[in-house]
Structures are given as structure tokens and as C-alpha cells.
Design a protein around this nucleic acid. Structure first.
Length: 583
RNA sequence: GGUCCUGUAGAUCAGUCUGGAGUGAUCGCCACCCUGUCAAGGUGGAGGCCGCGGGUUCAAAUCCCGUCAGGACCGCCA
């Protein structure tokens, strides 16, 4: 139907007879016999000079045959990629009429997102969405190329699988042939990729669709895509290398930027210095340890197991009191009892001192130590939280982001491997540990002797154990997680024992994996990278819905198709289901 | 499960705090004019359940309660 794309034509095409197809982006009618039609396809916009008698309106779909011509002297448009040329002697064929679009298609108007999603087919025509969808395609292409080059084999795993009670809520699909039984949609291909290792695939990958029935957020949808990776006879560092290469090549392909080597940080350092296991390292404002400073303090508010602080440069001048009060309230919503703040002022001696806020409760030595630990200067504002250590880290970590986080599209890509995650993240009500990652995660080599000594371990000892689990973080977003898996029966049994999972129980829940491991399991390790998140960050979007063609709203609905929706009674009957009336 | 924010013309918004006639703005849309525009220009016109329900009041877009929808976040996401 066409010979060229609108945006690909240039002065070098002058004189050519071409045929282009697309949507009427804008029309400028001068009279009965002159009109300018900006014709748009995904590649860009081309000005076509047509007889004004033609009734062409916004978003009409047309095919135009004409001659590429250099624009008359003085009428070139430098703001337009094709601004040096135009299509003359146009013959216009109307392919489809169109009603006026439900919202403007320019990039200047921030249209209500529900409206955009309800008419996503129109929204997708905008250059932003075209750019983002094509970035996703380039991302997948680069990743496939990199994984392929590293000897990985793409294997498809099932979407209808058995439900497992762990982790996120499963999406569930009723079985027609066996009423009362259900499939689950995969939260990840975890079990299957490990089975491919037992199956000798050696290096597996998949761009896998995963589903989790948990509340949605700017960086979370029910459905998402991940680069899923597993490798046999591979160490943690091997896996980090495989993934680094794929992600780095994707970064070059999408953002045109080589991120270089990825930094590494232990989970412990991340938590203590940034108050987060996914630190945004594009800016400083690190959490300072102040617990020793207040070890013997008279000040009630700082008599706590842990005290930490952060310093906002220039905050004493830039933060009005009303904003400070908001921050205090915000920290309380996050769970802190309070947020102590003080302004840093110049002292008579040429040094610094603390003023306002809770400053009057501090001794001179404490004040000096706080200033020293936070490296604060006059004009700065310092914030302190005193409480249990996990809460202090959590609240100050969030406050740090609130006060200092750069915009998502500032052009930097600070990839960071967070390593040595704890094996267990907490103890449940029965005093049994809860796995940080999953129960097949290999303990850290240095901690293996403690675990395997056979001695009973108390809660503190258990929570001190590290694992060979690791995360990839980009600019404060968790891109993915992975681990070295347990392939030794004795270690797996010991982990189940510590977790309080009886052998029968383990067999029932993970039997097919444990059975498989009886027949020769190679040492293996793996990873998964969230591609929606990676794609969003690479194009500078702060919301993954912008890089997903047909996303859901925060309540999990699709304004376009009205999903989720009821199904017919006959359909329910066939599936052996009955719907309870609302409670 | 929770906290906070938003909802006014087809679109983006002002008006809401401090109640007084849908007072509106820009873009778009419709009609007419216009032969070098490019966010074209000119003239005229149409277009409103102020999300929805209730309450207070002489009077509600505005205050109160509830509800629905959307968004950000906490919990949750092995």
C-alpha cells in the first residue's frame, strides 16, 4: 500500500514519487484550494500540500500519493524532522473516517490515565507510547541476543501449574475436567527452571510472563515479564556475570548508554547506610550511626536500641517549618514514634552547633558528635530517629528518598548488586524463621558450618545466617532477585528442619522438586530480572504502565475491556462453581 | 487492611479555604472566511448531573457524612 514511512523521508528524496499512509495529525486549511495536512505514522510526521476542497479531519486514515519536494525558500520548519520537505501534487485516498479523538494526541497535555486506558488504541498512537513499546521490543531483542551468545537455551514453561501455598497469592483457574480442582498461574517459573537443570539443559532462559495477585503499584502489575535465568555448574559470580552482560547490552540498546561495571554492596551495608535493600546510590545522604553517641544520654527520646540520622544539605534554609511538620507526620505514618530535627548553625568558635527542634535536649558533646557523624555544616538540617533498629532503618531510608531522590529520568543508570542477603528475614509467631528468598536458597559458604553443625540454633543465630541470594538494583528500584540453589540433600533437609517443615510436609509441598533432585541434581544458580521495571527506567518513565501496552489500573481493572467481569451461570455450572453473595 | 491526594464542558484547568445565578479560561468540535501554514489566523456557534447519594442552610461546585472511580504510598509482593 505504501512505499515509504512519513518520518524517514528527507531532502535526499526530493523528486521521488512516493505513497505514504497514516493518520491526519493536524490540518491547516487556508482556503478552498490550499490545505496543509500533517500525516502521521509511527515514524513521524510529513507535511502534505493538498487541495483544500478535500474534507480531511483529525485522525482520518488516508493514503497519499505525491512527489517529495523541497519546501519553498523560507518555509522550512527546523522543529520538524521532515521540515525541509513536503509532499506536493497529492492524490488523497480516504481509508477510514474517524470521530474526533477522546483526548488530544499532542505530547503537551497530561490526560487522565483512566481515559487513556479506556481508549488505549488511540493513546498508543502517541509518540511517547510508540517510543516506549519499541524500547520494550529493543530490550527483549538485546536480551535474547546476549543470552543466546552466552549459550543459553530458551525454554517455555507452563502457564497452568499446581498452586503452592508459599509467597504471593496465586491467580487461580478452575478445572473443567475436574470440577473442584484448580490450576494456578505461575508467580514465576521457579520450580520448572530448576527442573530443566536436572534435565541437563545446562543454561536456561526465558522471557517469562508471571502473575501475582497482590496489590498493584507504580512499579507492580498483576502480570509482568521477567528475564528468567538458571545455569548449572555455575557459581554466584557466574550468574552475576551472565545477567550483567544481558542487562548492560539492553541498556546500550535502549538508552544508548554503557553502564560499565556494576557495583556490589552487601545487604548489611545497604540496610545500615541507606535503610533499604534497594538503595538509590545516585545521591548520598547516607544514614549515620548515632547509637554510640547516645549510649548514656539523658535525653529520653534518644534512649533507644538504635539511633541514626541523616543530613539534608541546606535544609535549614530550604525547609519551611510547615514542611518539617509534614515530614514528622509522614514519619509517624511510616511507624516512627517521632522524627527529631535540628538546624545546623555557625558557632562562635567558627565551628557548627545545633539549634531549634530537639537541640535543647542534647548535651554539648552529643551535639558535636552528631554534627561530626553527619558531616553537617551551617545551613543544613539534620533528622534523627531512635527506635528498634529495623524501624529506624526503614523510616530514615524512606525519609532519605523523600528528601533527596533525583528524578527518574536524570540520565544515570546506577546498577548495583546487593549480595549476602540474610537466609531468614524474621521469625514467625512460633519462633520459626521465615525464608528471605525461598527454602531452596543455598546458605552462605562461611555460615554453612554453623548451620550444619547439628547444634540447635536460637533466633538470633538463625537471623544472623547469610545466604547466597542476591538482588539487582537500579536507581532504587529492585530489578530482580536470584540465588544459588541447594542441590545437596543434607543441606536441604537441615533447612526444612530449621524452618519447621516436617519431611512429609516437605514431600507434599515440594515433592516433585525433591524427587527430581534424587536423580542427580547439578549445582545450579539463577536469577530473574523484571523487564517492565527495567524498560521503564531505561526510557525514563516512573510508572511501568507507560511501558505496558494494555495495563491495569491500581484496583486491577482494565477500563478498556472492563475486566474483571462476571461470567454466565452456565459457564459457572460447567466449572462446578457457585459464587457466594457479597458478605 | 491502612494513610494521603484528586474528581467542574470532548480535553486540560481556574473557581472550593472565606457558601450568594454554571461566572468561567485555553485547546478541541461545528459553520463561514482566508493561497505558505506548521500549537496557522479571523468571525460566529454549540457544548455542564460541578463523580454519585444524603445532610446543614433562605441559599451548596463550595461546608459535613457516606459512597464510587482514579492516583501515590504503608502493609502485602517466598
Amino acid at each position: 500500500m505504501r512505499t515509504d514511512l512519513c518520518g524517514r523521508l528527507g531532502s535526499g528524496d526530493a523528486g521521488r514519487a512516493v505513497t505514504v499512509c497514516g493518520w491526519v495529525d493536524r490540518r491547516r486549511e487556508h482556503s478552498e484550494h490550499l490545505a496543509f495536512i500533517d500525516l502521521r505514522d509511527h515514524s513521524g510526521v510529513l507535511q502534505c500540500v493538498v487541495d483544500g476542497a478535500r474534507d480531511l479531519r483529525s485522525e482520518y486514515v488516508v493514503r497519499i500519493i505525491g512527489t517529495v519536494t523541497l519546501r519553498p525558500e523560507g518555509t522550512a520548519n527546523p522543529a520538524l524532522a521532515t521540515g525541509e520537505i513536503e509532499l506536493q501534487d497529492c492524490e488523497v485516498e480516504l481509508l477510514s473516517r474517524a470521530e474526533p479523538p477522546p483526548f488530544p494526541l499532542d505530547e503537551r497535555t497530561d490526560v487522565d490515565e483512566t481515559l487513556r486506558l479506556r481508549h488505549r488504541y488511540v493513546d498508543l498512537r502517541k509518540s511517547r507510547m510508540q517510543r516506549n513499546l519499541r524500547a520494550r521490543a529493543a530490550l527483549n531483542r538485546a536480551i535474547r541476543r546476549a543470552m543466546d551468545a552466552q549459550g543459553f537455551v530458551e525454554v517455555e514453561t507452563p502457564m497452568l501449574i499446581a498452586s503452592t501455598p508459599e509467597g504471593a497469592r496465586d491467580f487461580v483457574v478452575p478445572s473443567r475436567k475436574e470440577p473442584g480442582s484448580f490450576y494456578a498461574l505461575p508467580q514465576s517459573p521457579q520450580i520448572f527452571k530448576q527442573l530443566t537443570m536436572v534435565g541437563g539443559v545446562d543454561r536456561y532462559y526465558q522471557i517469562a510472563r508471571c502473575l501475582r495477585d497482590e496489590d498493584l503499584r507504580a512499579d507492580r502489575q498483576f502480570e509482568f515479564s521477567q528475564l528468567d535465568v538458571e545455569a548449572s555448574f555455575a557459581t554466584r559470580d557466574d550468574v552475576l556475570g551472565f545477567v550483567t552482560r544481558a542487562v548492560a547490552e539492553a541498556t546500550v540498546a535502549v538508552a544508548g548508554h554503557d553502564p560499565g561495571t556494576f557495583d556490589r554492596m552487601t545487604w548489611h551495608d545497604a540496610m545500615e547506610r541507606y535503610g533499604s535493600d534497594k538503595p538509590d546510590t545516585r545521591f548520598g545522604m547516607e544514614l549515620a550511626e548515632l547509637t554510640p553517641v547516645f549510649a548514656d544520654t539523658e535525653a529520653r527520646v534518644f534512649q533507644a536500641p538504635c539511633v541514626k540520622g541523616i543530613c539534608l544539605m541546606g535544609g535549614a534554609e530550604t525547609l519551611p517549618r510547615s514542611r518539617v511538620d509534614e515530614l514528622v507526620a509522614t514519619c509517624q505514618r511510616w511507624g516512627a514514634k517521632g522524627l527529631a530535627w535540628m538546624r545546623v548553625v555557625a558557632a562562635g568558635t567558627g565551628g557548627s552547633a545545633l539549634d531549634a527542634g530537639v537541640a535543647k535536649f542534647l548535651s554539648a558533646a552529643e551535639g558535636a558528635a552528631v554534627i561530626d557523624a553527619l558531616d553537617a555544616s551551617p545551613g543544613d538540617m539534620v533528622f534523627l530517629v531512635a527506635d528498634e533498629r529495623p524501624l529506624v532503618r526503614h523510616v530514615l531510608g524512606l525519609l532519605r528518598l523523600e528528601l533527596g531522590r533525583p528524578p527518574v529520568n536524570d540520565g544515570r543508570f546506577n546498577y548495583l548488586w546487593v549480595v549476602d542477603f540474610p537466609l531468614f528475614e524474621a521469625l514467625n509467631a512460633e519462633g520459626e524463621p521465615i525464608p528471605s528468598h525461598h527454602p531452596f536458597t543455598m546458605p552462605h559458604e562461611d555460615d554453612l558450618p554453623v548451620l550444619m553443625s547439628g547444634q540447635p540454633l536460637d533466633g538470633e543465630a538463625l537471623l544472623g545466617l547469610r545466604s547466597q541470594a542476591y538482588d539487582l538494583v537500579l536507581n532504587g528500584w529492585e530489578l530482580g532477585s536470584g540465588s544459588v540453589r541447594i542441590h545437596r540433600r543434607d543441606i536441604q533437609q537441615r533447612i526444612f528442619e530449621v524452618l519447621g517443615i516436617a519431611p512429609d510436609d516437605a514431600q507434599e509441598r515440594f515433592g516433585f522438586l525433591l524427587d527430581a533432585f534424587r536423580y542427580g541434581a547439578p549445582p545450579h544458580a539463577g536469577f530473574a530480572v523484571g523487564l517492565d521495571r527495567l524498560g521503564a527506567l531505561l526510557v525514563g518513565e516512573e510508572n511501568i504502565r507507560e511501558v505496558i501496552a494494555f495495563p491495569k489500573t491500581q484496583s486491577g481493572a482494565d477500563p478498556l475491556t472492563d475486566a474483571p467481569s462476571p461470567i454466565a451461570d452456565t459457564h459457572l455450572q460447567e466449572l462446578g462453581l457457585r459464587v457466594l453473595p457479597p458478605a
